[in-house]
Nucleic acid binder design. Structure first.
Lengths: 341, 341
DNA sequence: TTGTACGCGTTATCAA
DNA sequence: TTGATAACGCGTACAA
């Protein structure tokens, strides 16, 4: 069944059928009805490939993320896909992993599929050495590029992010305000957004005229699967004599690992140790006591990302930088007496 | 840049360019080199839409899942997407939600995009009333349908699943073998796979000639976000006088909720209460003590699903039912003395 | 080994 | 208000 068959059955030309399908109003009502009834009775659907060829678009958007099974990215993908679908777009998802080469390949794959736009979920795609970002700039010559939680100044690139630095500063300040001056900072990435978080931690100290001891800033080499290792990592630090009465982590699982250490050692939380994670994931409510965490408003970010994306695709002028604020969510690992902040 | 431009620059016909692009060997090496160098210098890529129109395929596969942010489904999507990409296929992801209507719409959307195959991740898509499954059968007339963790007997429908019934039976048996005769069964879905799990629980009792008390089979109406509610739910059951020394759950988060109850009440786990979850998710290692759980081999399922999918697409004869076994993973909420099973 | 010419199913332009 | 027809760019019989 194609448009020719329909046009013959309806006794009109393919042009008229096309007009009816696409809702043009310069068709005589009687003709329209006739065509519509034939279409319905035959269960005809326009061929998307032919349409794509003519219009140079299949209303498809590419989503790149390092790992869609990562809890945070999974949520991002979910929110983005849903919002795009509501706007009549389909999503090609590609998990790029953490290596630049495969990320570039994914990008090329999406470009060769002629997607209308590419969304980069996570700051892992942006290189500190800007010459390595050419693959993104090149794509931006053809289609709008949306950056979730990352930043890049370039034409046709739109950045939507949470002010992770300010949010992390807030979390750190909260602990400093309670005389927690020895705050362990755990992180596991050096991406743009991870760097911002760390800078927020430092800023909190600076603002108070305190010196930020580098011994307390610790990189953990592993993923959420290595929760046991995180616990071992923190335990080792403590055994080696590092004294800390606060922990701030760039990801919830790191905070959970620290909490594991505390629970096993019988350290009272939050009395003797306060812990704050990041992302406000489901992990925060699995532990006992439940984990305080920074909510970086992912749903809001994604909703707005799609809004800006759709706007840009319709040729409207859209802001290239959009920044939201994070929020500190208090549960049981931060001193509840001060929750009324 | 299109194939005509390349052919002119290379001084050959479009047919020859096409042959070079598609790796046919009936091209003179010198000609091939010439064409390849032009293609490279011009950065030419064949237009995917035109190719799709001619071949009636863009090597794209649709993945339907209720909610890609669900930890289990997120992993499924991740494994499937990766394996498909390795085989040169792209994935259109669509999150359908839990209502039949939107699921049908997603299916239609994918069919209208002319995907080569549709993968249904999760048993939520199959209705107990078979007349409601027509939307799947109809799609199967056009493309192969892959079912992950579900079952449907029909031409062109391939089912890959874990024997959830046997796995749950094994978990229940393990507790019964330790004289845990009062085992609370928590579940939150009535899907195909959820039904199988429950049947496994029942079977374990039957096999031992024990009566399965229906009071112990409890439906929890909520999702993993409602962890606190699960805890309240279990607490209420206990307060109402239900005595149990074992808990088996159809999802890890339900088990985590039960564990929360135990920790708060100071009940010794596993001495006075053994708990076993399902899915072996990251939640199992967040809690303290860590949660025993059933691993239903998701990665194996997905790898094989894609293998069968690719086979079916190449016209090979593939098995319509493939069943793997689950595995009981012991951590600290099941009696460790018997771990040597 | 290479080239010609057509089909794939739309949309859009222009003329009627 | 409608119709004829030219793009869109590729793959591929068939011919040479």
């Amino acid at each position: 069944m194609n448009i020719y068959d329909i046009s013959k059955l309806a006794g009109v030309s393919t042009a008229t059928v096309s007009r009816v399908i696409n809702g043009f109003d310069n068709v005589k009502p009687a003709t329209r009805e006739k065509v519509l009834s034939i279409i319905a009775s035959q269960g005809y659907t326009p061929n998307a490939f032919a349409r794509g060829l003519g219009l140079n678009s299949m209303k498809t958007i590419g989503i790149m993320c390092a790992d869609s099974s990562d809890m945070y990215l999974a949520k991002a993908v979910y929110y983005i896909e849903g919002a795009l679908r509501e706007n009549g777009y389909h999503c090609i998802l590609t998990c790029t992993g953490y290596e630049r080469k495969s990320q570039r390949e994914s990008m090329e794959m999406l470009m060769s599929q002629h997607v209308d736009c590419i969304i980069l979920a996570g700051s892992i795609f942006i290189d500190k050495d800007d010459s390595n970002n050419k693959y993104i700039y090149k794509a931006a010559d053809s289609v709008p590029i949306m950056l979730l939680n990352a930043n890049l100044d370039h034409k046709n690139i739109y950045c939507i992010s949470c002010d992770d630095s300010a949010a992390m500063e807030k979390a750190t300040e909260f602990l400093l305000d309670n005389k927690r001056n020895n705050i362990l900072y755990l992180y596991n990435s050096n991406s743009y957004s991870a760097t911002k978080k760390l800078s927020g931690y430092r800023k909190a100290f600076e603002k108070r005229g305190l010196k930020c001891n580098e011994d307390y800033i610790r990189y953990f080499n592993g993923t959420s699967k290595d929760l046991e290792k995180v616990c071992g990592f923190v335990t080792e630090l403590a055994d080696k004599g590092l004294k800390f009465n606060g922990v701030v982590a760039s990801e919830d699982f790191l905070a959970v690992g620290a909490l594991k250490y505390a629970v096993r050692k019988g350290i009272k939380v939050p009395k003797d140790l306060e812990i704050i994670g990041y992302n406000n994931s489901v992990l925060t409510v699995c532990t006992e006591p439940e984990l305080s965490s920074v909510d970086n408003q992912l749903e809001t970010l994604c909703t707005n990302l799609v809004r800006i994306c759709i706007g840009a695709l319709s040729g409207e002028s859209m802001p290239q930088k959009t920044v939201f604020n994070g929020e500190l969510i208090h549960r049981s690992t931060s001193a509840s007496s001060r929750k009324t902040k």
